[in-house]
Design a protein around this nucleic acid. Structure first.
Lengths: 213, 213
DNA sequence: GGAGTGTTTTATCAGGCGACCAAGAACAGT
DNA sequence: ACTGTTCTTGGTCGCCTGATAAAACACTCC
């Protein structure tokens, strides 16, 4: 039942293999879908026999939750640390820096948005779980970041929901569809220079002065 | 081998069932993925026995191509008709109207972007086929719409690739993730008033004056 | 150095998958 | 009414899926 939590001294092999499985699972769950990534394929990529997944995570569903939770934890760590280091800076500058870092994170971890766009298209257990455990706090944070700026007239008067999907869509799509982008334009969006170009583009679009159109 | 193409007079029942199958297939392929949508499930939703899919389309793969081709044809008809009716209008106004209509189409047919984000995340047959047969022309059209505007200084100096993914991401994400949006904010993005709000937001962001930052 | 626990492996289960086949039903031209 | 084609149906094949049972191994602690 308790796979690995209490005393760490008693399992030397477990943690490394757990990590390898999680990495392989995240890769495959995000590229193919939940149904499209078989436990055997995940096991093969992780270099372990298939029943090990059941042993460590109980079921395919629990493995999915563990893998997904990992990326969101990384995101929360990255973004949380960013705003922490900006105490006292004015709201607009903070927002610009946060958005810039969010674009960079989306480039470094396209699996995040790949999984979101896979599981949030249709009602279901996965959607409910994702929103309840991981997405809701992020959304609330984004809204409470945007609303003061809109109220102060520093960015356009657009409802926060629209700003949120404008931001996430504009920030992530190019990296989510990186293979398409390469085939279509010859440009590799994961190239650091291209990432910075996209950061600039997103920030410029989102934080345009309100009186421009 | 030839399922249905040459002379249409000889198949009275076929076309309606074909249409029902295609509709069900598009729905399920876009919500669940290609692997996640079984032929039995598609058949059940279409109200036909499962082997009919093999008869009409030969294989699951061919069914997928037919269903996908249908949405892209609709998009091409809609957008093509739009630019046709705007001969003589200045480039900037045309671009704004085309972008607005593209957002509206994305709201009316979220399946389009759902399928794209599903099959273009990883290299494979489906990606190659999609780009070659349907996405490339759209991309070329978008680029040749944006580049004169950038050259004339009417929109920000951002490479066309970035503009393309900024546009498609910002336009479609809210509608692709409509179930998430409802759960997250209580707002139904498919509500016509919300769609128009999103149209305004996307157009305003994309066509902001270049000298605003 | 044997007990006992945590981890890995092998072998196997029932169920769902895509595809196929042969027979039947509905229609067309004559 | 007959005939040939188009369309639909139920039945079934082999394959792959996620999960489990039980045996083999690894390691710590007494």
């Amino acid at each position: 039942m308790t796979t690995a939590s209490e005393h760490r001294a008693a399992r030397p092999h477990a943690d490394p293999t757990r990590a390898r499985i999680l990495e392989a699972a995240l890769d495959l769950f995000s590229e193919r879908s939940f149904e499209g990534a078989s436990t055997r394929l995940i096991a093969e990529r992780a270099g372990v026999p298939q029943p090990l997944l059941s042993y460590h995570f109980g079921s395919k569903d629990e493995l999915w939750k563990a893998a997904v939770g990992q990326v969101f934890d990384e995101l929360n760590r990255a973004m949380g640390g960013r705003v922490e280091g900006l105490r006292g800076v004015d709201d607009l500058t903070v927002a610009k820096l946060v958005v810039a870092d969010f674009v960079r994170f989306s480039a470094a971890h396209p699996e995040l948005h790949r999984i979101i766009t896979q599981e949030c298209k249709a009602e279901g257990e996965h959607l409910q779980w994702l929103v309840g455990h991981h997405i809701r706090p992020l959304y609330d944070g984004a809204v409470s970041m945007f609303e003061p700026l809109v109220a102060a007239g520093l960015i356009r008067d657009v409802p926060a929901v629209h700003l949120y999907y404008l931001l996430t869509g504009a920030a992530a799509t190019m990296f989510v569809l990186a293979p398409e982008c390469r085939l279509l334009s010859g440009v590799d969006p994961l190239d650091p220079a291209e990432v910075e170009r996209h950061v600039d583009a997103v920030v410029a679009m989102l934080f345009a002065a309100p009186g421009a159109p």
